[in-house]
Every structure is written in structure tokens, then in C-alpha cells.
Design a protein around this nucleic acid. Structure first.
Lengths: 137, 137
DNA sequence: AGCCATAGTGAGAATGATTATCAAAGTCAT
DNA sequence: ATGACTTTGATAATCATTCTCACTATGGCT
């Protein structure tokens, strides 16, 4: 079920590499600017295209910031959830067996099929908590 | 912690009532059109303002559709999660003690503070499953 | 090498939700 | 009714994302 390696264009590979180096979620615009800062000038359209492709194969995870902007991150391919720092954006992949069970149980109780679920935890990481000042924004 | 009743404008009250009658999440645009269909012509700006106010007091829940559009729903004021039908949008409020515990445990293990979490379950409800054809869209 | 077919790129336009403006209309205690 | 203040809503402005389309790179094939 885990999408296997799919064909990826040259720019797609570079964009994936860029995400590999980050430990936090990044918006398409941040990726665009980040690559530009490295001298790699991709068009926004290319970035969005690559991101779509990467998310469709499951190589990249997406989630929505509260303002609706999409954030992307390169992750392990197996199912997992995230613990995200509201200060610096640092993201930790976590497992959630109890969440899986919970979703399954609830869904069954109500007769729902084709279940998916989302579960993320947000908070302030120890670094940001001690430094009164968050690293980002 | 649960935000108490806050002052609400006249239109805000009408918009809240409109949401009261729905059992599924609605976008701002849907609310706009729905009210208009009832002969209540509010400006979009007014709808968005009321929605902001309602969500800030916790009277209305927000979540993001996969395309990033915000969806609103009048809910019980105590903390809960949602089971949402991907077919008709029908939404059921559910509790998730195990999720709360999970979030708390994980956060503590990593030293995170000021924890929040989100957890929703999506699936096809029994009605939509039997009728091959979903009610909405 | 030269040539075609096809996929990939990117500047800029188009879309669409949300937010900001701001003048006009409503509210209310005096 | 008067003035101080709030609410409203038509419209313009933002901003992320998607679409267009001419142009370029690529890969086979001779």
C-alpha cells in the first residue's frame, strides 16, 4: 500500500533533497525562497508540481497551518503522526498505536468505512520554552 | 478554560443560528449562499467577521478541507473530536480519552509545553455507503 | 549529427478564499 | 434629536495556488 518510488523529474529530485535537509515543515513559498537563496531558481509552478507529485506518492507529508497555508515535510513512509513546535516549527515524527485503535473503534461503532484519520500535536519545545524568544517568525 | 458567552452582534446571532441547524461543516461561502437562499442577505465580510468571533470564543469549530478552505460547525463547547463523512459531510462529535492521554504522554516525553492537538476521523457513513451516490457534491 | 515526439519548465495570468477599507447606516444613553 | 461609537457591506486588495502556453530539454532513431 505504501506508494513505491515513482518516477521523478530532475527538479523534483532537487526539491525533495531540499526538504530532506529540513527538520521542520515548510510552505511552498518558503521552499521557493530557500532554493532561490541557494542559487537554484525554480519557478513556483515547478515547485507546486513537484510537491503535488511527492505528496501523491506519500514521500512528503502535508498539513495545513491555521491560516490555511499548506506545509510540506519529507518523512518516513510508514504511517505516523507529528509533534510540532509552535515556536520554531521543529517536527518530530511520532507513532500512535492508541490513536489508530481509537479511530478504528469509533469508525466501526458508527458503521463508517474507508477510514482515514489525522492527528497532530502542537506545543512549545524545550528549546523555545527556555529561550523566551522563538527561533522563527 | 471554556470561553464563556461573549457579546455577539445581531448578524452574528443569526449566523450562529444558521449553523445550529446544520449537522455538517459548512464553508463561509456555503453559509453566505445558504443565508441568501433564506432571504437573509449578509455581506461576505459580515459572515467572516462573525465566524472569527464565534471561533475565538470556542462556540464554533473550524477545520480545513484538504484544499485549504475553512469549514465551520456549531459544536458542544467541551473538548471533542469529529467523525466526518467524506460523502455527505455529516459530522458526529466523538470523545477521545485515549487521544488526550496519548497527546499528553507524547508531549511530556519530549518536554513540550502548552500542548494542543487535533484529531479527526474521515470515512464513508452507512447512508452514503449503501446509496452508491453521495448526497453532496 | 540531425530530427521528431514528448515531457518538463517557468513567467505571468487567472482563480478563489480571506482580509482590509471606509463611507453609510444603526444603536443608544443622554 | 445629538453626538460617540459600533456594525455593516460593497468593493478593492492580498495571497496562496493553479492554469496557460510558448519555449526548452531529453531520448530515441536513423
Amino acid at each position: 500500500m505504501a506508494g513505491g518510488r515513482k518516477f521523478m523529474t530532475k527538479s523534483g529530485i532537487e526539491i525533495a533533497k531540499f526538504l530532506d535537509k529540513r527538520e521542520s515543515f515548510a510552505s511552498a513559498q518558503e521552499i521557493f525562497l530557500g532554493l532561490r537563496a541557494e542559487g537554484r531558481n525554480f519557478g513556483l509552478a515547478t515547485i507546486y508540481r513537484a510537491l503535488q507529485s511527492l505528496t501523491s506518492t506519500g514521500e512528503v507529508d502535508v498539513l495545513r497551518r491555521s491560516d490555511g497555508e499548506a506545509l510540506y515535510r519529507k518523512c518516513g513512509e510508514d504511517h505516523h503522526h507529528h509533534l510540532i513546535c509552535k515556536g520554531c516549527g521543529k517536527t518530530i515524527e511520532i507513532e500512535g498505536v492508541s490513536v489508530e485503535e481509537w479511530a478504528h473503534t469509533i469508525a466501526e461503532r458508527h458503521g463508517f468505512r474507508e477510514i482515514q484519520h489525522s492527528a497532530e500535536i502542537f506545543g512549545i519545545c524545550p528549546d523555545c520554552f527556555t529561550q523566551a524568544e522563538p527561533k522563527r517568525r
